[in-house]
Design a protein around this nucleic acid. Structure first.
Lengths: 329, 329
DNA sequence: CGCCTGATTTAGATCGATCTAATCTTTGTT
DNA sequence: AACAAAGATTAGATCGATCTAAATCAGGCG
């Protein structure tokens, strides 16, 4: 920058004003300096700039699992939205490990990010988040939140989602409905289960806890959960799955057992990831619009960083049931 | 850091040595300073550190499309590998726009990344990459490369992949085989087409260019390409698709037209993304192991950054055919 | 005890920008 | 013509670390 300034016959300070697009500077000088920059092939050092000005233009995104399309779609939403606002995203994945999550948060601190969007590891305490807040780094939680965390939150009405799914199954005539998959400590899972129970109660159906199985939120988890429930003396006629990925595992497991999803067992998923429309039978599922969660979170974080929001926000998106063929009995 | 140093009764320089894990410092002092850090809640400022020491510990990853599972799996590979080596990934998506790609490269420069892994936009010239090299920033290209770029490259033997797929279809008795989808300028697509043509020639089959259709590398693109080829007077009995996502679109289109993939038209994909095993019928496809591409690229970049590689590397992974049910006629 | 050697520690400059507060130029007013 | 107000520019300190080269310290030896 010194070189540019010298070449254009101005001071460093003036050159600095220009790269920042200040209107304090005369049009003639601006042109002159801009030319010098082009001529010398000057590259702005955003890192040095951030160091001095204390505002970061980078934000951290911490998710629990990158393999799950729900999160990669959420990433798309966040990324798109923040990109247009001029932020740079630095990415971290916890793989559901609290230790990794701590490391990542430390890293975000060390990089002095302007804010963080995170989906906390199931069962993590609000303390980890307070660590960021202590440094005045805004945090927006997505999809899950630790009990009584007092943070901005963007998520999905999981109780409603669970209820929608199970109401539909009941309406279709099912009376033994299982709830399969997902990690037990996850707040999202607990809410979906709450919806499940509420629907049963409302229909006067008994709650049978042998029909509720937790597992990893993966295909493999879904397969295993299905085994447990299928081997019972009185197996269910329908299953509501923690998410679409689990549902895929369940369908895979059914096929392996020579059973036909939709005919021999009704299956409902959750998330409505793109692939849900492509399986056979196409998956009936609760639409959670991960991209929308992402864009909302990004917008909220942006406002927070700008200081345009004063009190804690909670954005709860309403899910909808997408009916396809996996329960057409 | 000044505060920590004062509190521990040492100088800034000593404290700095300690955070960097130097062995020049006495064990007793180290302990003392580490304690002061804990007590004062000190947070290392990696940004400031990078500014002075000129080595970045962040690397850029530029991909063309985040929605495509091929890339999100590649991202997983890169991310995992670089994570363990202590790098931080900053992410960019070009959406196949050369302009966006330029912007992203500028951004990477401004952030003084230590290196870049990128899948260049189809048809981009080597000039954009030279811009980085001029600043001594190592670049590893993945999956596609501009004509005579002289860079490190990790990719898949697409000619072989195309040949494997079409050989198989020919062996199954097909004689009219289409090649559908993908952007025309993409080097990956051109190579797969080359393999397709080679297989036809070897079997003494004629090349009919009305059976080759380009499109966006998306589901929708696949659907559209299918229409074109299906409305012909003499439609094909098998299609080889540019990638799995396109193949999904094709299968969707077939179902919409009341046709059954595998029975009425054989379908082969490319990539072997996770979902390929889950569709119905399960997709026969060429396994390209995006994760492996990612980890290889990450390793190569790491070596380059360390200065452990002297001459240009090209890593070409050999694909394999994964036979499932989508051509079981 | 003084000197040398190797192990520790440190002062001060530096990375590339921004910020503050002051200075230098214009322009407008009476 | 004198002076104030507005407009444009700048010197020098600063952000939080690292680097260089020099200073300090401890132990061993003649």
């Amino acid at each position: 920058m010194q070189q540019v300034a010298d070449h254009a016959g101005v001071s460093r300070a003036t050159a600095s004003l220009i790269v920042r697009g200040s209107n304090l500077v005369a049009e003639r000088t601006r042109k002159k300096v801009l030319e010098s920059m082009k001529e010398l092939g000057y590259v702005y050092d955003r890192v040095a700039a951030n160091l001095r000005s204390r505002n970061s233009s980078t934000v951290g995104l911490i998710i629990t699992e990158i393999g799950n399309p729900f999160f990669s779609e959420l990433l798309v939403g966040v990324h798109q939205e923040l990109d247009t606002k001029g932020y740079t995203v630095i990415l971290g994945t916890t793989f559901e490990s609290a230790e990794k999550q701590d490391q990542l948060l430390s890293k975000m601190l060390e990089y002095r990010v302007g804010g963080v969007i995170m989906s906390p590891v199931s069962g993590s305490s609000p303390a980890v988040i307070d660590r960021l807040k202590q440094w005045d780094i805004p945090v927006v939680l997505v999809t899950k939140e630790p009990a009584n965390s007092n943070s901005d939150y963007v998520g999905i009405d999981n109780v409603l989602g669970g209820k929608l799914a199970v109401d539909y199954l009941i309406e279709k005539g099912h009376r033994r409905i299982a709830f399969l998959g997902g990690p037990s400590e996850s707040s999202a899972r607990m809410d979906r289960q709450r919806g499940y129970i509420r629907a049963l109660q409302q229909a006067g159906l008994p709650f049978d806890d042998s029909l509720v199985v937790t597992s990893a939120a993966t295909r493999q988890g879904g397969r295993e959960a299905l085994q447990q429930v299928l081997n019972q003396p009185n197996p269910p006629t329908a299953v509501f799955c923690y998410n679409d990925v689990v549902a895929f595992g369940v369908m895979l497991g059914l096929k392996e057992a020579g059973l036909m999803p939709g005919r021999d067992l009704a299956v409902v998923g959750y998330d409505n990831i793109e692939e849900a429309a492509m399986t056979s039978p196409a998956l009936t599922t609760v639409m959670a619009s991960p991209i929308l969660v992402g864009t909302n979170a990004a917008n909220l974080l942006h406002k927070r960083i700008m200081g345009n929001e004063d009190h804690v926000q909670r954005i709860i998106l309403k899910p909808e049931l997408v009916i396809r063929e996996s329960c057409s009995m």
